[in-house]
Design a binder for these strands. Structure first.
Length: 287
DNA sequence: CACTTGACCTGTCCGC
DNA sequence: TGCGGACAGGTCAAGT
């Protein structure tokens, strides 16, 4: 679930907390969540200072003074929650938090730092965190094939169109979800940007005009920017570095609105007509 | 190369 | 109430 806006929210939060702090310990209870050897942990993680926290697509990268990095993919249900020692490891405010006392039963990895602990929770165990030499990070398979950052100033609509056209025979939604086309888009922001651009998700890319694709990119940028501003989306699982939910779904127009009347249609159509549009709308929400 | 499918996992919900 | 199955949806490996 964590897509670009959610991972970016965590990145900003951890950037304010971790740099300069030293890692004192690491424990994990599910090997796939942290596959490195004990020897590597001793050599490159314990005693290392956090240098920076960066992001590429949906992947978070914690740079270390040992010239190794912790590369983290939250996949569907991953959470990265920091609790300072002064605060203790108890839960957050009940209304805006989804996590209580930590560690909990979904905690897979705990990093101890001088100032507190970083908890990697992952209900479904799809996510992972691994130590890699910083210089090798860009050359792992995932990063070698990944597309450009949609919010980067150097990303042009021309490049977007070229990449989309390579997926001529797939649905436009499948193309948007393909990380080698554009980095960081998942289900929520694909649905929202397609709706904003008035494109049915099942439309084949080859049947979209250049103009439509340009509109789609503009919508995507708009949607992602607002989502970051609202701290990301919490559907069921996502929380930020403080364990708090995101607010974007209050602004979402279609994601998880299956069966509800179409707002755009309700504004300008008679009851009879809007009923027909509602059916189309429900179709459009399904992936 | 373009595209599809199955595997990886657990918690939740729905029908019987 | 308990129990099985569908579903949730991001990647990767292996398939056509």
């Amino acid at each position: 679930m964590p897509e670009l806006p959610e991972v970016e929210t965590i990145r900003v939060g951890l950037s304010a907390l971790l740099p300069g702090k030293t890692v004192r310990g690491e424990t994990h209870n599910w090997p796939k969540s942290f596959p490195n050897s004990k020897a590597d942990v001793q050599r490159y993680l314990i005693g290392a200072k956090v240098v920076d926290v960066t992001r590429r697509g949906k992947v978070l990268i914690i740079g270390l003074s040992t010239k190794y990095s912790l590369v983290i993919h939250l996949k569907m249900t991953g959470q990265l929650v920091y609790r300072g020692k002064s605060v203790g490891f108890g839960g957050g405010h009940p209304t805006d938090s989804l996590v209580g006392q930590l560690p909990d039963k979904s905690t897979r990895v705990v990093l101890s730092l001088d100032s507190g602990k970083l908890f990697f929770n992952d209900q479904r165990k799809f996510g992972w965190m691994r130590l890699l030499p910083t210089a090798e990070v860009p050359s792992i398979d995932f990063f070698k094939k990944i597309g450009p950052e949609p919010l980067s100033a150097s990303f042009t609509s021309k490049e977007f169109m070229v990449r989309m056209r390579h997926r001529a025979n797939t649905s436009v939604k499948a193309a948007l979800l393909d990380q080698t086309v554009v980095a960081g888009v998942g289900n929520i922001y694909a649905d929202e940007s397609l709706y904003a651009a008035k494109i049915h998700p099942a439309t084949l890319v080859k049947n979209l005009s250049d103009q439509k694709l340009q509109k789609l990119l503009a919508s995507l940028i708009e949607v992602l920017t607002l989502a970051i501003k609202k701290g990301g989306s919490t559907d069921r699982n996502y929380v930020n570095h403080e364990g708090k939910k995101g607010n974007y779904l209050n602004y979402a127009k279609v994601f998880r609105k299956n069966g509800q009347p179409c707002r755009a249609a309700a504004q300008r159509l008679s009851k009879l007509e809007s009923r027909a549009v509602e059916r189309t709308f429900v179709l459009a929400v399904r992936s």
